[in-house]
Design a protein around this nucleic acid. Structure first.
Lengths: 116, 116
DNA sequence: TTGTTTTACATAAGATTCTTATGTATTATT
DNA sequence: AATAATACATAAGAATCTTATGTAAAACAA
């Protein structure tokens, strides 16, 4: 079981963006694998909790943005998720919205005198 | 009354950061003025709702991060907020956390092959 | 001068999203 | 043999926002 180490009010709203874009890059992943991948990519800084992950995957599936394929591994069943045809443009859109939000935040937060 | 035009799951978690850092730059502001300023700075892209703003200002005040000063303007009373001594390092910290979160998101989201 | 818009505060109900806690069961490691 | 890691799931609670509503003064337009 995972806990978030970034005090993450900030994760709110970005989890779907992360999941959709990760699946876009990686192709096919199962839930537990996604947790690990995010942990690795983020250098242990972002730890997605299962309580956030699984319900969100189910929602994305219900929206028709993900395809699911069950695979038996021994006696255990993994659920592999991938972007659906319908989900692909959503992944792009979510990423764009995130980038726009950062730009907007910069407009508000950046000191008037600084150039960064 | 305001509505958010950015479909803002993304505002979640960043409002306090915005308020603290805006007050740090501007010195003293009242609620309604903050809404206008954010609207202007963001080029109409981020419209803070009063239902989000006022309770959040009250929370920041309750934490001891803001000072409040009431001013009569005609028969109306404005509440001017400013960063308290205790609030100043929090503003800096929130900004740093936000920047770190963006860096972490970039680690997760950026395509392996691209350089941007 | 009368009606509408803007200014300026406030709070409550509802939706959404996350954390924390708990549960089940298999597989790997010590 | 016991513990940790893998792999799924859901429910209670906390936090944060949207939407709706309320009050009232000041400014503006018809």
């Amino acid at each position: 079981m995972y806990y978030c180490i970034m005090k993450n009010e900030l994760l709110k709203g970005t989890l779907k963006t992360i999941l959709l874009n990760l699946l876009e890059k990686e192709g096919e992943m199962y839930g537990y694998e996604i947790c690990q991948k995010v942990k690795d990519l983020s250098e242990e800084k972002l730890l997605i909790t299962e309580g956030a992950l699984y319900p969100t995957l189910h929602k994305l599936e219900a929206e028709g943005w993900l395809n699911v394929k069950k695979k038996k591994v021994g006696k255990r069943t993994r659920k592999y998720y991938s972007l659906s045809r319908k989900g692909k443009p959503i992944a792009v859109q979510k990423l764009r919205e995130f980038q726009e939000y950062i730009e907007t935040m910069n407009l508000i937060l950046q000191p008037k005198t600084a150039k960064s």
